[in-house]
Computed example of a mutant assay.
Amino acid sequence: MLKEFNFEGFNMGLDLRQLLLDFKNGKISLEDVEKQIKLNYFEEIENSLKLDVNRKYRTGVPEVVYGKGKEINEIIGAVLKLAEKNGIALATKIDNIEKLSDEIRKYDLKNYHIKINKKAKTLIIKDKNYTIKKIGKVGVITAGTSDIPIAEEAKETLEVMGVEVIISYDVGIAGIHRLFPTLKRMINNEVCCIIVVAGMEGALPSIVSSLVDIPVIGVPTSTSYGIKITPLLTMLHTCSPGLAVVNIDNGFGAGVFAGLIAKIIYEKSII
């Protein structure tokens, strides 16, 4: 009977295990299995947020809550639901991180570890019984101190994915001599790629990619005296190969990209 339904290529979450066992034992029909899978695909919170709770099984990265513009209770509720399903969950770009820090104390979270990064404006909730599997190392560099919040967002994203982060902040081209000890330390730590966060003219990622033999991910920031798009254009127009670029202030996107590189290398190393 099980052969009638093709599960090949479909990565199930642990919450579907009982459903499959019930089907195997003849307790439910094939039609009910299909219906429950469709219903399980999204979780709805108060008719306003739909959560893709099985995203990590398709893409290797759990859904992350984008906090900008959302109410604090919506953010906490969404992150709790995702943590319940996946063991760990992250929210980014939270507008009022101070208010969230106060409000979250009202919740019964004794079974969870809570991490609030006020500089990055992120929230991580992790089930105390959930273990993050370590999958490699990534370097994160900033040109200036004003770029640190975006770098911290990338760092929090990487840590949720199980990546160890080697950081070095404020090593921009205004004092280029500061860069070389940083790169030496990252090479010694065998990072698989380097995220470089820079505003102003955005030249640092191009310099880094000209000095190392691993992928570099450039993150332009909105830190600038002039036109905010300048660092993005500089990075996109680089003549130095090996540099990929995400959008302005997208530390999360850079973290995911670097984390997937680390994940692929790790998986190949254990085969």
Rank of each mutant, 00 (worst) to 15 (best):
G259H: 00
M235I: 05
K50A: 10
M235E: 01
P241H: 14
S29L: 03
P220I: 10
T142K: 03
T238F: 07
L100H: 00
V245Y: 02
K93E: 05
L100W: 02
D32K: 00
L204R: 01
G226Y: 15
V197F: 00
G172Y: 01
L90Y: 03
G251A: 06
K81A: 07
A91N: 06
I104W: 07
C192D: 13
I271P: 09
S101Q: 06
L90W: 04
E84A: 11
Y266H: 10
F5P: 03
I114G: 08
N188S: 12
I265H: 06
G259N: 07
T131L: 11
D213W: 13
Y266R: 03
V165F: 09
E153W: 10
V140T: 04
N250C: 10
I75K: 01
P62Q: 08
K50C: 11
S146R: 14
A78N: 05
K115V: 13
R55Q: 08
I270V: 08
I214A: 09
L20W: 02
P62D: 14
N129C: 13
A174I: 10
E156P: 07
N6D: 11
K126T: 08
E164T: 15
M235D: 02
I176E: 11
I75V: 13
K137Y: 15
A203I: 10
Y41V: 07
K106L: 15
V79A: 05
E74I: 10
C193N: 00
N111V: 12
T59L: 14
E44W: 06
L100R: 04
V33W: 00
P220F: 06
K81M: 05
F257I: 08
F42G: 08
R58V: 10
D95A: 07
Y225F: 15
G69V: 13
I229F: 14
K268S: 11
K133Y: 15
G9F: 00
A89I: 05
F23H: 01
L82F: 13
G162Y: 07
M1D: 15
V65G: 03
K118M: 13
E4N: 08
K50E: 14
D95N: 10
N250H: 06
K263Q: 09
K81V: 05
D147S: 04
P62W: 05
R55I: 06
K128T: 11
I76L: 03
E74K: 09
V246Q: 02
L51H: 01
V165M: 05
S209F: 15
Q18E: 12
E46K: 14
D108I: 11
E4T: 07
I227S: 15
L260K: 13
I271N: 11
V208F: 03
K126E: 12
T145N: 08
N250Y: 05
V140I: 09
S269N: 12
I148H: 01
E34D: 03
L82E: 03
L123Y: 04
L233Q: 13
K118H: 14
L16P: 00
K27F: 01
P215S: 08
L21C: 12
I97A: 06
N129T: 10
E164P: 09
K24D: 00
